[in-house]
């Protein structure tokens, strides 16, 4: 009897702790997605009645503007992830191995600082700097390097720079984690055995950091793929992002069925790229997210 009540007690605490998670997942994520999935397979016929059909998905493949944007988004997201890694690795290495231990916390805080303001404000900050009448153009005109202001916004390069900037922290933090566990004497030993900086990086640092690189890359890739604000504001009309297509279907065309189909295509894309990435680096998802 006593054992039974004990068991019951444990089950109650389990229910207490699980309820918020289950509610969150089912009400806000699973249920809407099921609804969206159903919606994506339905379309209006000529008389305005809803019927089951694959036409939403067919349209995606028929119209080059859609699948080209889709491929562009995927390729650019991978590029952004790679660039973020290339920039974040030296930063993380400096913080963990080069900087004096008492400055490490301070430097990490400096990285965190921009994230205290919202992404919207940060993007507008970039726009103030880069636009035709912006700070940089003003400065270049004053010093005589340019004689006419140049529009630096609304192109792919600026947009990618903005996306990298937004993603930095999510790459640096996991990299700091793995690099802290790298024993300094391994680097010294490699150096002593005749390795130069490049081979130390390729043979010692990167193999050790793979779990951190993969988890950082997954986060950065997913955030970039699903980002709407930065591509929309900094890329403008010249740099289409697939999220903008989804937004247009939902808000501009009011075609929720089409929008849902695009949304699911994006979901499949991100899952696929991450799966391939994990296979290539020989990592397990459960290990990487830890």
């Amino acid at each position: 009897m006593k054992a039974f009540s004990g068991k019951l007690h444990i089950q109650w605490t389990l229910v207490c702790f699980l309820t918020p998670v289950v509610l969150w997942l089912s009400l806000l994520i699973v249920l809407p997605h099921i609804d969206l999935l159903l919606m994506s397979f339905r379309t209006e016929d000529d008389s305005g009645r809803l019927m089951w059909s694959l036409s939403n998905y067919m349209l995606f493949f028929r119209e080059p503007i859609y699948w080209l944007t889709f491929v562009r988004t995927a390729v650019y997201s991978i590029l952004v992830t790679f660039l973020t890694f290339v920039i974040a690795l030296p930063v993380a290495f400096y913080i963990t191995k080069v900087a004096a231990p008492r400055f490490q916390g301070f430097l990490t805080l400096l990285l965190l600082l921009p994230f205290w303001v919202s992404e919207l404000v940060r993007v507008y900050g970039w726009m103030i700097l880069l636009r035709e009448s912006g700070v940089i153009n003003h400065f270049l005109l004053k010093t005589g390097i340019l004689d006419r202001p140049v529009e630096m916004l609304y192109n792919d390069v600026t947009m990618i720079m903005g996306l990298v900037y937004t993603s930095m922290l999510f790459m640096v933090v996991p990299l700091i984690g793995v690099l802290e566990s790298l024993d300094d004497s391994l680097i010294e030993a490699a150096y002593d055995l005749g390795a130069n900086m490049w081979s130390i990086l390729i043979k010692i640092i990167i193999p050790h950091a793979v779990p951190g690189i993969v988890s950082g890359s997954i986060v950065v890739f997913m955030l970039t793929l699903g980002n709407y604000l930065t591509p929309n504001l900094m890329g403008g009309k010249n740099s289409l992002w697939f999220t903008e297509q989804i937004y247009n279907q939902f808000i501009a065309s009011f075609n929720w069925n089409q929008g849902s189909a695009f949304g699911f295509l994006l979901l499949v894309l991100s899952s696929l790229v991450i799966w391939v990435g994990l296979k290539l680096t020989n990592q397990k998802l459960s290990k990487v997210v830890k």
Partner: peptide, 12 residues
């Protein structure tokens, strides 16, 4: 060449 106190063999 130096043999380190903790040996510093490359675990990877």
């Amino acid at each position: 060449n130096l043999i380190f106190q903790q040996l510093a063999l490359f675990p990877m």
